[in-house]
């Protein structure tokens, strides 16, 4: 999923202070799962913002709406019924959702309530960790299903580096050395010989280096 965290309240308050009516929009997908921008978090932020402004002697009208998905135009369209009653839109989706709203509702300012972090997985309740950087040319088949691009601090393709110590990365003893994990896994699978293969320099054009990316499925595109 795409993970995110709420921005500090003061930063969000700066966005909303000049206005009196906001449309606060959550998303039912990734940000609900990582407890950053689902229906519940919309309610919490709404109460927090309203109280902060009441304390300052102002009132803030908040319309709370949580869309099925904020990164799809058909769901973002649902906001059309509320948009006229709002001065601004405050989005609790990832950056994709915020931008989809900005694209559709050109006449209203849109602000992000979250900081979008990374593509990750849930390690356990309340803890999410980075797993993929969307490099566009997945290597997991040769690295035992463990990604060195997202999980090695230096993005080393033929690791480990000299900083790997007792399974931990040199940046912190809280961070596993991903190349240790890869080695352990290959060994468990009896595929140690794969480790000896030198991985060629990666062509990063499939990643962000090739500019903004797009997928076009001719069989589906209208």
């Amino acid at each position: 999923m795409i993970t995110a965290e709420r921005k500090p309240m003061e930063e969000i308050l700066e966005f909303v202070r000049p206005y009196s009516r906001i449309l606060l929009v959550g998303c039912n997908e990734c940000v609900t799962v990582c407890a950053a921008g689902g229906r519940k978090e919309v309610g919490i932020l709404s109460a927090g913002l309203q109280m902060a402004l009441m304390k300052e002697g102002k009132t803030l009208d908040v319309k709370e709406v949580t869309l099925e998905r904020q990164c799809d135009p058909e769901y973002v369209e649902e906001l059309v019924t509320y948009i006229d009653q709002a001065d601004i839109i405050l989005s609790m989706a990832c950056g994709c959702g915020v931008q989809e709203i900005a694209r559709r509702y050109k006449e209203k300012p849109v602000y992000p309530a979250l900081n979008t972090k990374f593509m990750g997985a849930s390690e356990r309740q309340g803890i999410w960790a980075e797993r993929c950087q969307g490099c566009g040319d997945c290597l997991l088949g040769i690295t035992g299903g463990i990604c060195p691009i997202a999980r090695c601090s230096k993005r080393i393709m033929n690791g480990p580096c000299g900083g790997s110590t007792q399974g931990k990365c040199e940046i912190s003893s809280d961070v596993d050395c991903v190349w240790q994990l890869i080695w352990d896994r290959l060994k468990a699978l009896g595929m140690e010989n794969r480790y000896e293969d030198i991985m060629a320099a990666k062509d990063w054009r499939s990643s962000r280096d090739g500019g903004p990316r797009k997928i076009i499925r001719e069989d589906l595109a209208e």
């Binding site: 919490i44 109460a47 309203q50 109280m51 009441m54």
Partner: peptide, 11 residues
């Protein structure tokens, strides 16, 4: 009890 209930009571 969720954070929301606590905040709404105060609000």
């Amino acid at each position: 009890i969720d954070v929301k209930h606590i905040l709404r009571a105060l609000q």
